[in-house]
Design a protein around this nucleic acid. Structure first.
Length: 268
DNA sequence: CGCATTTCCTGGTAGC
DNA sequence: TGCTACCAGGAAATGC
């Protein structure tokens, strides 16, 4: 599913084609106006002045002091060629159209006043970008002190750091030898510190591979990401841990399928 | 406020 | 074979 490397790959594909183009029409296709598809008509006649990303959200900065916010959810795909099925949104430009496909309708596509994210709590309270200097060991350790929530759950909340979803959080915790149920404020300082460069390395490597394609995710050009081959725990239930050869297990944390090596990741 | 649980949504698949 | 039940999960809503 689209997490930071996937969304950034999509952003890079969109930017050169959307910059300084005018939205001629914005229409819902097999979707009704809803909290997740809102105020699209306000984007009509506006020009796209920047194509940004914050965590897993794409933010198109529009000329009329508006932001067009796109979240790919689990199955969202953007492309300039029409899809056969599950198209939800079509944006028309002078020379081409942008289509949004979303099989399971977990995605969002909405227009808000620029920078006004009050109605989007996750975006509003989002932590630092993981590849930026603001995400550093000292600050991360400080953030983890704020709650006793399980470390995996807290990272998924986007508050201590932005952009990680179920795949990369499992990968990072395995690399750092941290059990996902460890209370955030109980994590040893050394472990918290170690997790920071690990997160940066995993996300950078995945971005280099254009992300992880398991099922739906595609680049704007329709290509698959190649990072799936590098996954160490996610989707490897019953297979051998690449570090100690014990079998990878699948547990549930905060209602999410969670992959761990029971030998490398002990809960203290 | 903090934290846990439920909801949304649909194609694939396990089980009978 | 054909049906039902359940699973996947990001973010918001709801519950306590």
């Amino acid at each position: 599913m689209p997490e930071l490397p996937e969304v950034e790959t999509v952003r890079l594909g969109l930017e050169p084609r959307l910059l300084n183009t005018k939205i001629l029409s914005a229409s819902l296709v097999d979707a009704k106006p809803h909290k997740k598809y809102k105020d699209l008509e306000l984007s009509v006649g506006q020009s796209i002045k920047a194509v940004k990303r914050r965590g897993k959200f794409l933010i198109l900065k529009l000329s009329g002091n508006l932001d067009l916010i796109i979240h790919l959810g689990m199955t969202g795909v953007l492309a300039f060629e029409p899809f056969e099925k599950h198209t939800r949104v079509k944006l028309e430009f002078a020379n081409e159209n942008l289509y949004f496909q979303d099989l399971r309708r977990f995605g969002r596509f909405l227009v808000v006043p620029a920078g006004n994210y009050q109605s989007m709590p996750t975006l509003h309270h989002m932590g630092p970008e993981p590849l930026a200097d603001a995400f550093n060991p000292k600050q991360f350790h400080k953030a983890l002190k704020k709650t006793q929530t399980a470390i995996k759950t807290y990272i998924l909340s986007q508050r201590p750091v932005a952009g990680l979803g179920n795949i990369y959080v499992d990968e990072a915790l395995w690399r750092a030898k941290i059990h996902p149920k460890t209370a955030a404020n109980k994590l040893k300082k050394a472990k918290a510190h170690a997790l920071v460069p690990i997160i940066k390395e995993i996300l950078s490597a995945s971005l280099e591979a254009q992300g992880t394609t398991l099922n739906d995710y595609r680049t704007v050009e329709g290509d698959s990401g190649e990072y799936a081959a590098a996954l160490q725990v996610y989707g490897r239930k019953g297979l051998s841990c690449h570090r100690c050869a014990k079998k990878i297990e699948r547990i549930v944390v905060a209602g999410r399928g969670t992959h761990i090596c029971p030998n490398c990741q002990k809960l203290f």
